[in-house]
Design a protein around this nucleic acid. Structure first.
Lengths: 152, 152
DNA sequence: AGACCAACGTTGGTTTGGCCAACATTACAT
DNA sequence: ATGTAATGTTGGCCAAACCAACGTTGGTCT
């Protein structure tokens, strides 16, 4: 009976920050696994979704809306441009900018990703009722709003 | 009026996995900032807290309880041993093991950290009532339990 | 006894994501 | 015109979660 493999310490178990992070790890693992089927990572999806929802935009603007850093955005756009899921074209009206536009193939891919993602959310939230899920969303949204959420 | 800086896309805003991760980023940022005052990172705290709560144990056992990987545990123990917050001694009964014991200085440090951490939790949860906080804890705990929580 | 296999600490490495700093180019305001 | 700001890009940092391998040691099994 040496070190009988106890559960994690009480001090840690009820810690909101830790619980949140733990849940985030679980959620991200599930989502990543789902996206991996399509050879895609979270950034890619965020970008495609934003493009479809807001239409073409510059990399900087897209970065602001998705929470992806300018520098990381470069690589993300590169990836998706290579696969022809979006197009990068210089803005004639402002030659500093690239205008990023989603392609038809991108939209098709996005539809697939949406399905995968929905399934992932469902797996993540499996133990919660619909009411619980809404409740969780509300609580987290309030936290994000209050803290000005750099992430988004 | 070009790209009037809209908010993040609807598709992403209500996504539970993303909300959770966003909240985790916020929480971790706050906690890290608090711990940084003491020159400490989250792993260090987890280890000290576990030691005080469960008493001396081997690195592997501690890793299992805190969710810290064996290899990362080495560095964590190194750090804290250097600062004399814990002691690493070979186990006479099993020479594969190191027995890690918290020192009095470690306990003192831990008390400080607990205060810092409590303040950090409060900052994180600021917009939520006591009932809301408990609610959030319950929901996240259910998620962790259901998914067998590698993190702990 | 010997032969296996499992656990331990350790080293070293990969990957991902969130960052920050700097730079040349271009736009804009004064 | 002169300075300030935004853009895309490169290159880098760091924490954290992992994984693979190794030599050492323990325990098991026959």
């Amino acid at each position: 009976m040496d070190t009988p493999e106890g559960p994690p310490p009480e001090r840690l178990r009820a810690l909101p920050s830790r619980l949140t992070y733990g849940a985030a790890l679980i959620a991200n693992r599930i989502v990543d696994r789902a996206f991996a089927q399509a050879g895609i990572r979270r950034h890619h999806y965020s970008l495609l979704a934003t493009l479809e929802e807001y239409g073409p935009a510059s990399q900087a603007a897209l970065g602001r809306r998705t929470g992806i850093d300018r520098s990381d955005m470069v690589a993300t756009v590169n990836d998706l441009a290579e696969r022809q899921l979006l197009e990068r074209a210089p803005d004639p009206e402002d030659r500093r900018r690239n205008i990023i536009t989603i392609t038809p193939a991108g939209r098709r891919q996005l539809a697939d990703l949406d399905r995968l993602l929905a399934a992932a959310q469902d797996e993540y939230l499996a133990p919660l009722s619909a009411a619980d899920r809404q409740n969780l969303i509300n609580l987290l949204t309030r936290l994000a709003d209050h803290h000005g959420d750099k992430h988004n």
